[in-house]
């Protein structure tokens, strides 16, 4: 279902949602654009590039208590959650959740993830002003894609919004709101969509990645490519598809929390052995996971082209270039680290 809404009508829709749901939407928190629970329509940002942190934090929280324990007694975590809406999700981020579903729901279901996923509606917002670092179009996505969303809001500018449902729940939300969408509206929308897509200049050729990665495992290229990397966790943590975690006991709580393959201790074993001790190995792992192993296992690349890794890298490593420049042919093997 598609409907055309004016700004005031859209605000009314949001206001209505706030009564029924916990609404999470992008806000400006001391200069950071973050998705946060909101109670006022005015707090919500409409025109913003993308949030600093992806919405994965609401499904795979940075820190999550799995259960509590005290003197041998275990208290399971409360999984029940009030129905919630995440409002203003960008298409790239909405798509990232579909990729995370493959990890957490496909074979063995992760109940913590599943319950959060089940109780959340996603209302997306199309993207009219992509950033220089964006490259969603290279990964089966685009600034107006509605994949993974219940409802997509396309900004036709001048206060008019085209809303398109993508699920029965989404359709339910749209019912009886705004007016019909006519052909002219569609045309405007297509024009905006195409204009936006043209703005995304960064183009990758993912079709070559798998082969190149297979050939380049021992390539000395990685030594050079990883040199600037400072091995922090920014790219991993801010990536909407990175989902590695660690589990620890903290003062009577078993918690799982974000971890990343860029850290030295990520693969450190009790014996002290560490198969990925070197920076080169850790740097490389990210690409092999996203564009090699995940593709082999799930048939898709583990990347949505949101560009957060590029934007936030402390030393401005161009991650897309790293892949593009990966030599097509196998090179002299570097020393094993």
């Amino acid at each position: 279902m598609k409907r055309l809404l004016k700004k005031e009508e859209l605000n009314r829709l949001l206001l209505g949602l706030m009564k029924e749901y916990d609404v999470i939407a992008p806000i400006d928190e001391e200069g950071l654009i973050l998705f946060r629970p909101v109670t006022k329509v005015e707090q919500v940002l409409w025109d913003y590039p993308n949030s600093l942190k992806p919405v994965k934090e609401f499904f795979l929280p940075p820190r999550e208590v799995l259960f509590q324990f005290k003197r041998g007694k275990v208290q399971p975590a409360n999984l029940s959650l009030k129905k919630r809406v995440i409002w203003g999700v960008r298409p790239c981020d909405a798509r990232s959740l579909l990729l995370l579903d493959k990890v957490f729901l496909d074979s063995t279901q992760d109940v913590y993830y599943r319950e959060k996923r089940k109780s959340t509606l996603l209302v997306g917002l199309s993207c009219n002003h992509p950033e220089k670092s964006c490259f969603c179009t290279s990964f089966a996505s685009g600034p107006h894609h509605k994949e993974g969303m219940d409802l997509l809001i396309a900004d036709l500018e001048e206060g008019i919004f085209l809303l398109e449902s993508n699920s029965p729940e989404g359709e339910q939300l749209l019912k009886g709101r705004g007016k019909e969408v006519n052909k002219i509206d569609e045309k405007i929308r297509t024009k905006i969509k195409e204009k936006t897509e043209r703005k995304i200049e960064r183009k990758l050729k993912p079709s070559q990645f798998l082969e190149r990665l297979t050939n380049g495992f021992d390539s000395s290229y990685w030594e050079k490519a990883s040199r600037q990397c400072i091995s922090c966790g920014i790219c991993r943590y801010l990536c909407p598809t990175c989902h590695c975690f660690d589990i620890a006991d903290e003062e009577g709580e078993r918690v799982r929390f974000w971890d990343g393959c860029s850290f030295r201790n990520f693969t450190k074993m009790t014996s002290g052995e560490n198969p990925r001790f070197g920076k080169r190995e850790r740097f490389k792992q990210w690409y092999y996971h996203k564009f090699g192993y995940f593709k082999e296992n799930h048939g898709v690349f583990l990347c949505v082209g949101c560009g957060r890794c590029l934007r936030n890298c402390p030393v401005k490593i161009d991650f897309s270039e790293v892949l593009q420049q990966l030599p097509a042919q196998a090179q002299t093997p570097a020393r094993e680290g």
């Binding site: 942190k53 940075p62 922090c232 966790g233 920014i234 943590y237 929390f257 974000w258 402390p314």
Partner: peptide
């Protein structure tokens, strides 16, 4: 409260 423990401060 905001810290995400990315350790970029340490690494840089």
């Amino acid at each position: 409260e905001k810290c995400i423990r990315c350790y970029a401060c340490r690494q840089v």
